[in-house]
Design a protein around this nucleic acid. Structure first.
Length: 299
DNA sequence: GCGTCCAGGTCTACC
DNA sequence: GGTAGACCTGGACGC
């Protein structure tokens, strides 16, 4: 069966899927030939469901493995809207950059939506797995988590593990099997805290805290420093952090400083005119060349 | 094949 | 508040 989900006028499926590296990390799978993003999604009261998401005109077409009830299909559609950020308004951001010659391409291409997982927990675990290592190691860590602790769909593909599933495993598992090294204790502690309701990471989505306070809350999680916290904030819809890492610093240096080393303060100054949208403006600038002006893939 | 060096972000201890 | 060293893995490099 299929679901058809209408999208906002300025929405770009391609820019959203390729907004950052998440589409390459399980349980996401991206087929660049067919332009289909697939994954297994946990839906309450059902076995995990495989979905294949593609653009169809002004809508999103979601092919579902098997049949599901109305209640489940409503929940599934909501989950997909969340991942693709279809309910988030970028009008203020687009208005801010539309007259800027270096940034007016963003509204023109419908860029700015950063793909996210169905849960904050999944995004947070993955973000910790990106720290202080290569992308290959991140892929390996996430791949092992999904393949060993994820719940299988009827076809055998797996979800991202729940906090409870991760909490049941000893720290040794993360060290020996996942290859998480010194991050093992962080992953175990995070899973324990979420599974025991000691921390409500999903609640961050509706938090009334100012961003600076919410950032402190996120940094209470061991393994989450400025980089992790500011990236998670972006996925929560708060873009006033830069989330600088070595790749961004290097890319900024090539794009704006002829390859010379630049300070973080200089990077911050470069985008300061974008105020609360500074982090999104930076990320769009850094990833502008991931696709051509006409929306063709160039990576 | 083996050993060494380095990159990557965060934590802890210390000043 | 700022800084140094440790943490762990994989890739690059030299022998």
């Amino acid at each position: 069966m299929n679901l058809v989900i209408p999208t906002p006028k300025e929405f770009s499926f391609k820019r959203t899927v390729l907004s950052h590296g998440w589409c390459e990390l399980p349980p996401f799978h991206f087929d660049p030939q067919k332009w289909v993003l697939s994954r297994v999604v946990a839906v309450e009261g059902e076995a995990p469901i495989e979905v294949a998401i593609a653009q169809k005109g002004a809508s999103i077409d979601v092919a579902i493995s098997g049949k599901i009830g109305k209640k489940q299909s409503t929940a599934l559609a909501q989950s997909i809207r969340y991942m693709l950020r279809l309910d988030e308004s970028f009008n203020d951001f687009y208005a801010l950059v539309s007259d800027d010659p270096d940034f007016s391409w963003i509204p023109a291409q419908g860029a700015g939506r950063l793909l996210r997982a169905p849960t904050v927990f999944e995004d947070l675990v993955k973000m910790i797995c990106t720290t202080n290592c290569s992308w290959a190691l991140t892929s390996k860590m996430v791949g092992v988590l999904v393949s060993t602790l994820g719940e299988p769909s009827k076809r055998g593909r797996r979800t991202f593990p729940t906090p409870q599933a991760m909490s049941k495993m000893p720290e040794r598992f993360y060290r020996d099997k996942v290859g998480a090294g010194y991050r093992s204790g962080y992953l175990k502690e995070l899973a324990d805290m979420v599974a025991s309701n000691e921390i409500d990471v999903e609640g961050w989505l509706k938090s009334d805290l100012p961003t600076s306070e919410l950032k402190k809350e996120i940094k209470r999680v061991k393994g989450a420093g400025d980089y992790v916290a500011e990236n998670i904030l972006k996925l929560l819809g708060r873009y006033d952090g830069l989330a600088l890492d070595s790749w961004v610093r290097g890319k900024f240096s090539k794009m704006h400083a002829k390859g010379r080393a630049v300070t973080d303060k200089k990077i911050a100054r470069h985008y300061s005119r974008f105020g609360p949208w500074v982090g999104l403006a930076l990320w769009c600038d850094m990833t502008r060349d991931w696709m051509g002006e006409a929306g063709t893939v160039e990576i």
